[in-house]
């Protein structure tokens, strides 16, 4: 059994009277420990698929199972709890809370766990160590470069040790060098820590760092 099993996934958006089909009857398996890249033209529905995998939105029909658990049928409340345990999300624009320090941003997901304050601190430091920002613990996002911000974003995504790491164009806002560092970090998370990663990207060189590249076009997935 694959870690993630997507079956017959369909998503349509309704805008006024107009129905916009985005994903149509889509099947996909993601194995544990895989590093998958998702490519496709703009508007093809990559983010939509990633958001559904993250439990941020409800599919129109079809099913998504993660570790055998049906995600698509959960209520919003159940999804919130499920996300906090199983999903680490990395955003294109980092999306750190500007008023919190690197440490406090990374600590946020742990506030939803039963960890003690000390345990949380240890986890946060470990995460920031992994992304190489141990010396930027008390910096605010505005005091960090884009690449550093994204590394804090990655630390936040991995700190609660989630089942799945989902990244939506994680290098999209970065220059080549910084982007490369981020890709190296994701590779390491995959090879060294066995993290399962799904990454949306427009950049073929970024996609090449993954194990498997899937293309999404006109609502259909192809290799």
């Amino acid at each position: 059994m694959a870690l993630v099993e997507v079956r017959g996934l369909t998503k349509t958006y309704q805008r006024d009277a107009q129905v916009i089909p985005v994903l149509e009857n889509l099947d996909l398996d993601i194995e544990k420990g895989e590093f998958m890249a998702l490519m496709g033209p703009s508007g093809s529905g990559k983010s939509t698929l990633l958001n559904l995998l993250a439990g941020l939105d409800h599919p129109t029909s079809g099913s998504i199972r993660v570790e055998g658990q049906e995600v698509s049928g959960m209520s919003s409340r159940q999804l919130a709890t499920w996300r906090s345990r199983h999903v680490g999300f990395i955003f294109q624009r980092y999306n750190l809370l500007p008023v919190l320090t690197a440490f406090q941003n990374v600590e946020l997901p742990l506030l939803l766990t039963s960890l003690s304050k000390k345990e949380r601190r240890d986890h946060v430091h470990t995460s920031l160590n992994v992304v190489g920002l141990a010396d930027r613990v008390d910096h605010y996002p505005r005091q960090l470069s884009g690449g550093q911000e994204q590394r804090v974003g990655i630390a936040r995504a991995i700190v609660s040790d989630p089942t799945l790491i989902l990244a939506d164009e994680p290098t999209g806002d970065l220059d080549a060098v910084a982007g490369d560092e981020i890709l190296t970090l994701l590779e390491r998370l995959n090879s060294e820590f066995g993290k399962t990663i799904v990454m949306v990207t427009h950049d073929p060189r970024a996609a090449d760092r993954s194990h498997r590249i899937m293309h999404l076009e006109k609502g259909v997935l192809t290799r």
């Binding site: 993250a54 941020l56 919003s76 409340r77 919130a80 709890t81 499920w82 996300r83 906090s84 345990r85 999903v87 999300f89 955003f91 999306n95 809370l97 500007p98 946020l108 997901p109 939803l112 936040r156």
Partner: peptide, 14 residues
């Protein structure tokens, strides 16, 4: 709004 969305993504409840 984006900050709220991030908090929700992380699993904070409504």
């Amino acid at each position: 709004a984006p900050e709220i969305a991030v908090l929700r993504t992380l699993g904070f409840r409504p």
